[in-house]
């Protein structure tokens, strides 16, 4: 009657409840989690960005049937196709510069403050198509000061004449 029965096995297995990681492990776990998140933030690969964006878009549509991953994957493939087409079509610096020139010869870039109707008014047949984008309303809401400043003055082009900080002692 030395047979182990279910009860015996269950009791012996209780030993495994007492196997614990080294002291401080759980306290440190959250820090390690944050560190990995920051590392991922700086190293997100393109496919992951596409997948997340596609999935978010589907979720916002609030259509349960579309939140499944096969749909998201399809969306990703479509995005990837669009993006790879765009990447292959990246204009050479010279031609991009040529398009920029026609914008900068006119008024300074008024992205933050220009309402839509003004943008339409500035665009003429002489301007290459790509410049119209630069005159389009900004992607972010302009602040009050930006509205008054950019209408009146061009932007401040930054290159300081002194470094931002300095040291006073040879102490380390």
């Amino acid at each position: 009657m030395d047979e182990f029965n279910d009860n015996e096995i269950a009791k012996l297995l209780r030993l495994k409840r007492y196997e614990q990681p080294p002291p401080g492990y759980f306290e440190n776990f959250l820090h390690e989690f944050h560190r990995r998140q920051r590392d991922e933030l700086l190293r997100e690969p393109l496919w992951r960005i596409c997948l997340d964006r596609g999935h978010d878009f589907m979720l916002r549509l609030n259509l349960p049937a579309l939140t499944s991953y096969p749909v998201a994957v399809t969306a990703v493939l479509v995005c990837a196709a669009v993006i790879s087409l765009k990447l292959y079509q990246t204009p050479a610096p010279a031609s991009l510069a040529a398009q920029d020139r026609s914008v900068s010869n006119g008024q300074p870039l008024q992205v933050f403050a220009t309402p839509t109707n003004n943008a339409d008014a500035e665009w003429t047949l002489a301007s290459p198509a790509a410049t119209r984008f630069f005159s389009a309303p900004s992607l972010r809401n302009p602040t009050e000061s930006a509205f008054t400043h950019t209408r009146a003055t061009p932007p401040r082009y930054v290159l300081d004449s002194v470094p931002v900080s300095y040291e006073t002692t040879f102490k380390f």
Binding site: L42, R43, E44, P45, L46, I49, L109, V111, F112, P142, T143, S145, A146, H149, T150, T153, P155, R156, Y157, V158, L159
Partner: peptide
């Protein structure tokens, strides 16, 4: 790079350090 600070709009230059837009 374009940005806005308390003085108004500013422009500067930057460059990518990795393929994910940093």
């Amino acid at each position: 790079i374009h940005a806005i600070d308390p003085h108004g709009e500013l422009c500067g230059t930057g460059f990518f350090a990795d393929p994910t837009g940093t």
